[in-house]
């Protein structure tokens, strides 16, 4: 399974129109993500990291280039069609956690199952919460948690659908280095134990060094 390519991008471009000028956020990027590997995307601010992971997670569509996710060609698909691609296959973790404030920890974790039309088995939710180290917080609201705990909930939410790829945009960016380290450990554990692929962006070179591979972006191109 090690060489099973889950995501494959060729010559990916993502251009934004800003008034009369065109911002080339991504300008010809080739990338492959295989099952069970961790890929770290590095690069200075504005280099296109977020733009790239948004494409890889089917949250956004490329302006040009070929993109295959889970065996499906994605370039040229509408938002309506992209939903079907990301559902169940991809789990997304944000820098700002983005938990639903009115829902408890367990409910946040179970939320993606609702949209998949799957029943949230309590045992399954408990398993996910245990995996992210929040077994004793199931009934808490996000506002009652620390930043690190919130990110654990977000990871649990991403894992609840048992995705094949976990995508995280600066997941430790809002956490202190110690907490960030712990979150990164959690990511590594899921890669090891569940065989999911991990794509994450970071400014933290120490964390990047612990990934299987790194990609470095500058001005929308891969430079290393």
């Amino acid at each position: 399974m090690a060489n099973d390519i889950l995501i494959s991008g060729r010559n990916l471009r993502r251009h934004y129109r800003r008034g009369s000028e065109t911002v080339k956020a991504l300008d010809g990027v080739d990338v492959d993500v295989r099952a069970g590997e961790s890929v770290c995307v590095l690069g200075p601010s504005g280099s296109g990291k977020t733009t790239l992971v948004n494409l890889l997670s089917a949250l956004d569509a490329p302006t040009a280039g070929e993109l295959t996710i889970g065996g499906r060609r994605v370039d040229g698909l509408s938002e309506r069609e992209l939903v079907g691609v990301r559902r169940g296959l991809l789990g997304y973790v944000f820098q700002q956690f983005h938990l639903i404030p009115t829902l408890t920890v367990a409910e946040n974790v179970a939320l993606p199952l609702l949209f998949l039309g799957r029943k949230a088995e309590p045992a399954e939710i408990a398993r996910v919460l245990a995996a992210v180290g929040l077994a004793d917080r199931a009934g808490h609201l996000p506002k009652e948690l620390s930043g690190g705990q919130m990110q654990r909930v977000a990871i649990g939410r991403a894992l609840a659908v048992r995705p094949r790829v976990l995508i995280a945009d600066e997941p430790t960016g809002n956490l202190d280095s110690h907490t960030g380290e712990a979150i990164f450990d959690l990511f590594q554990k899921t890669v090891r134990e569940d065989g999911v692929a991990l794509v994450l962006t970071t400014h933290n070179l120490a964390l990047a060094a612990r990934c299987d591979r790194t990609l470095t972006l500058a001005d929308g191109r891969i430079v290393a």
Binding site: L59, V83, G84, R86, R87, H98, I100, F115, R157
Partner: peptide, 11 residues
């Protein structure tokens, strides 16, 4: 965010 975690248009 709901869309990012899998909610479709209809949902």
């Amino acid at each position: 965010v709901l869309k990012a975690v899998g909610a479709g248009r209809g949902q």
